[in-house]
Simulated scan of single mutants.
Amino acid sequence: MLKVGLIGCSLCQDKCWENKDFLAVREGEGVFKNVGAAELIGCFTCGGCPGKQVVDRARLLVKGGADIIALSSSIHHAGDGCGCPYYENIRKELDKQLKSVIIIDTVTNSGM
């Protein structure tokens, strides 16, 4: 079973991401439908704007066994007032720094 580390927005963490993203990982639904059910090994926030700790926290998740780093829907979701203005920079930096780890976005499914 693949192991997933989840990173969400520190400003929106109490509004939206935990309930739907945790379920998607556990049930293999949404962007995880091609992966199947996975084990959530941990979750962090980005560390605050502009994603100050996102790479370091993703590395901790990888060190803990994550095969996949998933960006929470709170980082790239604008429908409920959340959405990170630094999303593109965060995504590019994770792709650059974690070349051997799949990075997925829980909205667009990019990276899978």
Rank of each mutant, 00 (worst) to 15 (best):
V4T: 04
V4G: 01
G5R: 01
G5K: 04
G5M: 05
L6I: 13
L6Q: 01
L6S: 03
I7G: 00
G8R: 05
G8C: 07
G8S: 04
C9L: 06
C9V: 05
C9P: 07
S10F: 06
S10Y: 11
S10D: 10
L11M: 12
L11Q: 13
C12A: 13
C12W: 00
Q13R: 09
Q13V: 05
Q13M: 11
Q13L: 13
Q13K: 07
D14I: 09
D14W: 03
K15R: 11
K15D: 04
K15F: 09
K15T: 12
C16H: 09
C16S: 11
C16I: 10
C16K: 02
W17F: 10
W17L: 06
W17D: 00
W17N: 01
E18R: 04
N19A: 14
N19R: 13
N19T: 10
N19I: 13
D21Y: 01
D21H: 03
F22V: 14
L23H: 08
L23S: 14
L23E: 15
A24F: 09
R26D: 07
R26G: 05
R26T: 12
E27C: 05
E27D: 12
G28Q: 04
E29A: 12
G30N: 12
V31L: 03
V31Y: 00
V31P: 03
F32T: 02
F32W: 05
F32D: 07
F32G: 02
K33L: 10
N34C: 11
N34F: 09
V35K: 04
V35G: 00
G36F: 10
A37Q: 14
A38R: 07
A38M: 04
A38T: 06
A38L: 03
A38K: 02
A38N: 03
E39S: 12
L40H: 08
L40N: 05
I41H: 03
I41R: 07
I41M: 09
I41A: 10
G42T: 08
G42Y: 02
C43D: 08
C43W: 12
C43G: 10
F44M: 06
F44D: 02
F44C: 04
F44L: 06
F44I: 02
T45V: 04
T45I: 01
C46H: 03
C46A: 09
C46G: 05
C46P: 04
C46T: 06
G47K: 04
G47Q: 06
G47C: 09
G47E: 06
G47R: 03
G48N: 11
G48Y: 15
G48W: 14
G48V: 12
C49A: 15
C49K: 15
C49L: 15
P50M: 14
P50G: 15
G51T: 08
G51I: 01
G51S: 09
G51M: 04
K52S: 10
K52Q: 15
K52D: 06
Q53K: 15
Q53L: 13
Q53D: 12
V54Y: 00
V54F: 05
V54N: 01
V54D: 00
V55E: 11
D56V: 02
D56H: 08
D56Y: 11
R57A: 02
A58V: 05
A58F: 02
A58K: 01
R59D: 07
R59Y: 11
R59W: 04
